[in-house]
Nucleic acid binder design. Structure first.
Lengths: 175, 175
DNA sequence: GACAGGCTACCTACTAGATGGTAGACTAAG
DNA sequence: CTTAGTCTACCATCTAGTAGGTAGCCTGTC
């Protein structure tokens, strides 16, 4: 799903990969939207875990941002994958409502975390933002998603890293 | 295709919309990839026309960027559509090769144009970039694509405009 | 001017295979 | 004996794509 999107994977694909029959997968996930929803719940939990871990490991806001970027960067380099919600976001009008809501929830959650990081950076005088934090956070999320997509298209993970590095360095000015 | 992506539209959908039978569409576009390729050729031509028009209308590089952003913004507001190549980029691993190449070609072409605009801005002393123009152009493209996707997800075109405005104003510093 | 051949654009009817999903039997483990 | 998990076998529907036919138009030839 993360590789091919919601509309381009099937129960048969999964059946082949995990080695049990289609019907058995339907036993665990009655409908495709159940399956996708569960995948999203787990994906969100994983990302949440990463941000929590980062929050514990450092107080340096810039480093926090870089850690998130690094997480995506590794996924891109090692598995050629972009953000699950980036893929699904592009297919949004075709998704069942429950799935759509998970994707939107993910975006909101990440934006909220990013806002918090920026707020902290401003508070300790390390960053200087020029617009409401919320808008800065949205820009960060958008660029991450777009840069992942374009970088994978060109099979060039450096594109992603450079774009994020550039954005972090210059949109958030150090004083 | 621009709304739902490559994998979520069918000949039957088109047949219904244009009022001729599926087989007749196959007469004009034998395979789905032919159809998609042709759509991309025309989409690219449209965007190329826009950039050419912009190049003729103004020499102000900032205004040029804003015109491009405006083009997308209108598409988003009026038809709820994001960039065709943004949608297809997310599905890239599932696309036939010919289609994939058109998408990549589009990205390259836009990046080249953006580089040119930035170069001109630097030359006339209106902009000040801190990295190779190419990298700045890539950042712009990535943000445009990502911001379109996220903005449509939240059904909030202002998100797209704000993100682009923010990026144009601050990544490219006026001297 | 008539007529033959070819061409364009469409049609109906079909195919083989994939899709998400279900019914009901089997099996192993507690 | 129950139950969770798997299986085989099936279903209706949709998919891209094909075969073959037809109506109308253009063009070259007698």
């Amino acid at each position: 799903m993360q590789e091919r999107g919601y509309n381009a994977f099937s129960y048969a694909d999964i059946s082949e990969k995990v080695g049990i029959r289609k019907a058995s997968i339907h036993y665990h996930f009655p409908s495709k939207s159940d399956l996708a929803k569960e995948a999203l719940v787990r994906y969100r939990a994983r990302v949440r875990e990463l941000t929590r871990h980062v929050d514990q490991q450092t107080t340096d806001p810039r480093q926090k941002l870089e850690w998130l970027v690094n997480g995506y960067s590794m996924m891109l380099r090692e598995q050629n994958l972009i953000c699950l919600c980036g893929v699904l976001g592009a297919e949004l009008p075709t998704l069942p409502e429950g799935v759509r809501n998970e994707v939107l929830g993910f975006f909101s959650e990440v934006e909220t975390w990013l806002s918090g990081v920026l707020e902290q950076g401003v508070k300790i005088g390390m960053m200087q933002v020029e617009q409401p934090l919320e808008l800065e956070a949205r820009l960060l999320l958008s660029t991450i998603q777009g840069a992942l997509m374009v970088a994978r298209a060109f099979n060039d993970a450096a594109r992603f890293e450079q774009a994020c590095e550039r954005l972090i360095s210059h949109v958030i000015k150090k004083t």
